[in-house]
Computed example of a mutant assay.
Amino acid sequence: MASPSFREISLNGLWKNNPALVQLLGLCPLLGTSNSTVNALGLALASAIVLICSNTAVSLVRGVVNTAVRLPAFVMIIAALTTCIELLMQAYTYELYQILGIFIPLITTNCVILGRADAFAAKNDPLRAAYDGLVMGLGFGVVLVLIGALRELFGTGVLFANMQLLFGPMAAGWQVTVFPGYPGFLLAILPPGAFIVLGLLIAGKNRIDQALVERARAKQPDAPVQSRRVRVTGVIE
C-alpha cells in the first residue's frame, strides 16, 4: 500500500477527517474544558504535543513490537508522554493545571491519540507519522479553541480572559471586552452550551461540504447523451 501524501494527510486532519467534527473523537475533553479560550488552548497544546510525540515513537518501534502486545505498548508510550506533560504543567502553569484537573491525565485514554497511533503511526514512517500527529492535533485544537472562544464570548462578553495562566504575566492585558456591559448568558458556559456550539459547528461544516459538492457539479460540463439500443424482454428501445 502506497504511503499517503503530505497533502492528503493535511486535508484529512484539518477538514475531511477532522477528529472533532467528523470522527467525533475525544468529546469528553472537547466539551468538558471548552468553557473559556485559555482552558481550551491549554488542553489543545498538551494534546497536540502528546499526539506528535506518541505518533513518532510508535512509528519508530512498530517493527519490533509484537502484535499481541501492540495496544498495551502504545498505551504505555502515550501514558509516559502524558505524565511528562502533566509534570511540565505543574511546574510552569500550575493554576491552569488545577483548573483542567482530571482532563490532563485523561489524555492517555483520548481516542484521537490512541486511534492515530494504531491506525496510522503503526503503518507509516516516522516523518509521516509525526506530520499526521501535528495535523490531527491542529485540527482537534482549532475546533477546541473555537468552541472555547465562542462559549466565552457569548457567556461573558469577553475574549482571552486569564491568558496569563498559560503565557505568564505578559498576557495579563490580553483580555478583549467585545460587549461592554454584557449581562452574561449562563447557558453558553454550562455543559449544554458545549453541545449546542459543537452541533452548530458540525452543521456548518456539513453545509460547506454540500456547497462545495454542488459547485463542483455545476462546473462540470454535461455528459454527452449517447443513443444506444438495449433489448429488454424482446422490445427494442
Rank of each mutant, 00 (worst) to 15 (best):
V22A: 08
T82R: 13
K123M: 06
Y182G: 00
L51A: 13
N35S: 15
V61K: 01
V145R: 04
A203P: 00
G173A: 02
Q98Y: 06
E8P: 00
T56L: 15
T233R: 14
E237W: 07
L27S: 11
G204I: 03
V225K: 14
L60A: 10
A48E: 10
V69D: 10
M136V: 15
C84R: 04
A172D: 07
F167L: 06
F160A: 02
G173R: 02
P183D: 04
E95G: 01
K123T: 10
P105R: 11
L144E: 15
A223T: 13
K16Y: 12
R128N: 09
I49H: 12
G181C: 01
C111F: 08
N12F: 09
V230F: 07
P169Q: 05
L27A: 07
R128I: 02
F160Q: 01
P126V: 07
G137D: 11
A161I: 00
L14P: 05
V213Y: 09
V158I: 05
L45N: 08
L88F: 12
A119F: 11
G32N: 14
P221S: 13
R217V: 08
L114K: 01
A203R: 09
R215C: 06
L144M: 14
V176L: 13
L41E: 10
V232G: 08
A79W: 12
Q220R: 14
V38S: 12
F195V: 04
I77T: 15
L165V: 02
R207S: 09
A20G: 05
N206H: 15
